[in-house]
């Protein structure tokens, strides 16, 4: 129990600290790296909650794909972040005021918030049945009860792929590609012409 508590505070602290670093570090590449650290620690939090599937997905999808994509974008687009940051102090008072108002409103709402009595037990049970793992339970739902939605989501991804190809693929004309089959199939007669050239005439 004590190890779990320590692990929770460790993961939570690193998540928040690296989230702060994401928005405060000067170098955008460092920001993305801190974002990855935040993702890893959130995944740790998910594992503590017994949601190992979400943890794995978080790492595979967000670290593996999204963060790497961010890294590419940050490196490829030459955005001048120092310029974007200019005037930070100038806008601090108004931004801080709006943030403060939002915070007060949130406190008002949360102080009147009443959780349903059964909410705590429902939230604690990661698996409806009990003796099967989280991933197993999700898989059973997705491929049986929600097969229709699963297929629909697949179609949406297919359309996204078609769309990306339709809007960006260009067949460039005038590009000289090497066609090895053509090169090999070439005969001597197609390549070399023998001419008799008379003296002092040229072709």
């Amino acid at each position: 129990m004590i190890i779990e508590t320590i692990a929770f505070y460790l993961f939570a602290f690193i998540t928040i600290a690296s989230a702060v670093m994401v928005i405060s570090s000067k170098n955008p590449v460092h920001s993305v790296l801190f974002l990855i650290l935040a993702f890893f620690n959130s995944a740790g939090l998910f594992i503590l909650m017994g949601a190992e599937f979400l943890a794995m997905i978080l790492i595979v999808v967000y670290v593996g794909a999204v963060a790497v994509l961010f890294l590419f974008v940050v490196m490829m687009l030459d955005v001048n972040f120092a310029e974007l940051r200019a005037g930070f102090l100038q806008y601090l008072p108004i931004g801080g005021l709006i943030g403060l108002i939002l915070l007060i409103e949130l406190i008002f709402i949360l102080s009147a918030w009443v959780l349903a009595p059964e909410a705590e037990t429902v939230a604690r049970a990661p698996v409806p049945g009990g003796d099967i793992s989280n991933t197993d339970a999700l898989g059973r739902l997705i491929y049986t009860d929600y097969a229709y939605l699963f297929q629909a989501a697949g179609l949406i991804l297919l359309v996204a792929m078609i769309g990306a190809i339709v809007l960006t693929l260009r067949e460039r004309v005038g590009v000289r590609k090497q066609k090895i089959a053509d090169q090999i199939a070439r005969k001597r007669e197609e390549a070399v012409a023998v001419r008799k050239v008379g003296t002092g005439e040229g072709i």
Binding site: A152, L155, I156, V159, G163, L167
Partner: peptide, 23 residues
Amino acid sequence: LISLYLGLELQSLCLYVIAAFRR
């Protein structure tokens, strides 16, 4: 509501692409 949303997205995604078809 979930199947509604997936149908809506499938439709909308196609429409966005068709609107920009003359790229």
